[in-house]
């Protein structure tokens, strides 16, 4: 893949906490344009909290997150809204609005933030659903389709406005291996065709090795990041036992 080495997201000296409980300290990394960046870590290490900070739902305790050089939490509400509008987010369960059909779910962002006519919105919705393999499902309600399809419909909604950055929260959670694999393929295809930057929060090793260009590994015990880089290279080159253990599901103990 052609690499565009310009950071779209920069994380500087970031501390995360819940009230008095520290979750993560001193995170420093950047995410380049059009790359697939994976935030890895064990359960409860703060991956989802970090994602909340990324998507503007939770303010960090310290430090900053920059989007194209703009520090998100120092911007005005209006500017924050503007930045957030360039995000697409796929939540863990799809988070589709249950009283809307799939078509209406995808159409809502378009109705809010574009000047397209109803028939044009229908065309865009048709395309987005077709892109995730759900063509013909616009009239279905989320309760009428399977979990994997709900996730793909959630993805169609996430890419409705051609976002610059798409965030995925545990995309393979709850999916069978084949569906998980096809979602991974879809992520790669969408990155290549929509030219979006993709940030994935996950601990699924198969997905990590299949899609990630770059990654950061968060550690619960030391409460900070312990590795950064391409996961395959980390597996081959890392000297840190914790990194090797994580990337081999504990099968290799690593060099201490």
């Amino acid at each position: 893949m052609e690499k565009n080495q310009q950071p779209i997201i920069e994380v500087r000296n970031l501390d995360l906490s819940y009230e008095d409980y520290d979750v993560m300290r001193n995170l420093n990394f950047s995410i380049n344009k059009e790359e697939i960046f994976v935030v890895m870590g064990g359960s409860g290490c703060g991956k989802s909290t970090l994602l909340k900070v990324f998507i503007g739902l939770k303010e960090p305790t310290k430090g900053e997150v920059l989007y194209n050089g703009k520090s998100f939490w120092e911007e005005s509400d209006l500017e924050q809204q503007e930045i957030m509008r360039r995000f697409g987010i796929l939540y863990q369960g799809g988070a589709l609005w249950s009283s809307f059909t799939l078509g209406e779910n995808v159409a809502l962002p378009l109705q809010l933030y574009s000047n397209l006519s109803a028939s044009q919105i229908r065309e865009v919705v048709e395309l987005k659903l077709a892109l995730v393999g759900l063509s013909g499902y616009a009239g279905f309600y989320p309760s009428e389709i399977s979990g994997g399809m709900r996730k793909r419909a959630g993805l169609a909604r996430a890419i409705a406005l051609d976002p610059d950055i798409v965030f995925f929260d545990e995309p393979s959670a709850g999916l069978d291996p084949i569906s998980a694999r096809s979602l991974d393929d879809l992520i790669l295809q969408l990155r290549d065709t929509l030219k979006a930057t993709i940030v994935v929060v996950t601990h699924e090793l198969a997905s990590i090795f299949a899609i990630a260009n770059n990654s950061v590994l968060l550690d619960t015990d030391s409460k900070t990041m312990i590795a950064m880089g391409n996961p395959k290279e980390l597996l081959n080159n890392s000297k840190d036992a914790r990194v090797i253990q994580f990337l081999t599901r504990g099968e290799r103990q690593g060099v201490v």
Binding site: A130, L131, S135, G136, G139, M149, S182, T193, L194
Partner: peptide
Amino acid sequence: GAQKLIVLASKVNEKVMPQK
């Protein structure tokens, strides 16, 4: 890129077309 997107969208992933 547009050609690729059309190809991607034209793939029918669901084996059975839905019948509401």
